[in-house]
Amino acid sequence: MKKIVLILGVALGVLACNKTETNSKEFKTAYIDTAEIIEKYEKFKDEDAKFNVKSEELGRPLEAKVRAFQAEAQSFRQNAQAKGPQWAQQKGAELQQREQQLGIEQNALIQQLQQEGAVLKDSLISEVKKFIKDYGKKKGYDYIYGTGDAATILYAKDGYDITKDVLKELNDKYNASKGDEKAATKEEAKK
């Protein structure tokens, strides 16, 4: 009995493998290492260099303020004992307030740069995806897979897109459950 089950399992496995092989031969597929594209695409490199220059330019005024603050803090440490505790307390509070303000400025600059960097990266990735899609159509690919940091399908023929069908069923199911909830609420209200 165990031998029959084992033989049947092996036979089904072989048939399943054969069926998969014939289906995979029907499609023209390829893959792209997205991490390598990001690393080696010249436009990515150029835009990254421009962004780094812009970051440095925007950061220079803040760096100058930080250096001035550090010099003033060093002077404070040297003069604190000589000028007395009252002066040290007042000057220390002023320095602390300036340090907090510099921290706020630094955080704002970092946030601005992160937002600008994200927008730039998104636009470049969209551009690359569009290129890959056009390339796939031109070369007759059914699927182009992505590997690397973002492993996704980068291109597929429109006929293989079942998004609308799945979305319709999800929405129908959701709307039906909403209708059931409304009916249940009306039933409870009648009681």
Rank of each mutant, 00 (worst) to 15 (best):
K2W: 12
K3Y: 11
I4M: 05
I7S: 11
V10N: 05
A11D: 00
G13A: 12
G13F: 09
G13W: 07
V14R: 06
C17A: 15
K19Q: 14
E21P: 02
N23T: 05
N23G: 01
S24Q: 14
K25Q: 14
K25R: 14
F27G: 01
K28E: 10
T29E: 10
T29I: 15
T29K: 07
Y31S: 11
A35Q: 12
E36W: 03
I38L: 10
E42I: 08
F44T: 02
F44K: 03
K45W: 04
K45A: 14
D46T: 15
D48H: 01
A49H: 05
K50N: 13
N52M: 08
V53E: 15
K54A: 15
S55M: 11
E57H: 03
G59Q: 08
R60W: 00
P61S: 01
P61I: 02
L62T: 06
E63D: 07
A64Y: 03
A64P: 00
K65T: 01
V66T: 08
R67V: 11
A71I: 05
E72C: 02
R77E: 13
Q78E: 12
N79H: 02
Q81T: 09
Q81S: 14
K83V: 00
W87C: 07
A88W: 04
A88E: 03
G92P: 08
L95N: 09
Q97F: 06
R98L: 12
E99S: 13
E99C: 00
Q100V: 07
Q101F: 05
Q101D: 13
Q101L: 12
G103D: 07
G103E: 07
Q106S: 11
Q106Y: 06
Q106L: 03
L109F: 03
L109W: 01
Q112S: 08
Q115T: 13
G117P: 11
G117H: 11
A118R: 13
K121P: 02
K121E: 13
I125W: 09
S126V: 03
K130N: 15
F131E: 09
I132A: 07
I132S: 07
Y135F: 15
Y135H: 07
G136V: 02
G136M: 02
Y141E: 05
Y141R: 00
Y143D: 10
I144D: 06
G146Y: 00
T147R: 14
G148C: 09
A151M: 04
T152D: 13
L154T: 06
L154A: 08
L154R: 04
Y155A: 09
A156E: 15
K157Q: 14
D158Q: 14
D158G: 14
D158S: 14
G159Q: 08
D161F: 04
I162K: 14
I162Y: 10
T163C: 04
T163H: 10
K164H: 09
D165W: 07
V166P: 00
K168Q: 11
K168G: 00
E169F: 12
Y174F: 10
N175F: 06
N175T: 04
K178F: 01
G179M: 08
D180N: 10
D180M: 08
E181M: 12
E181D: 09
A184G: 04
E187S: 08
K190T: 05
K190L: 09
K190I: 02
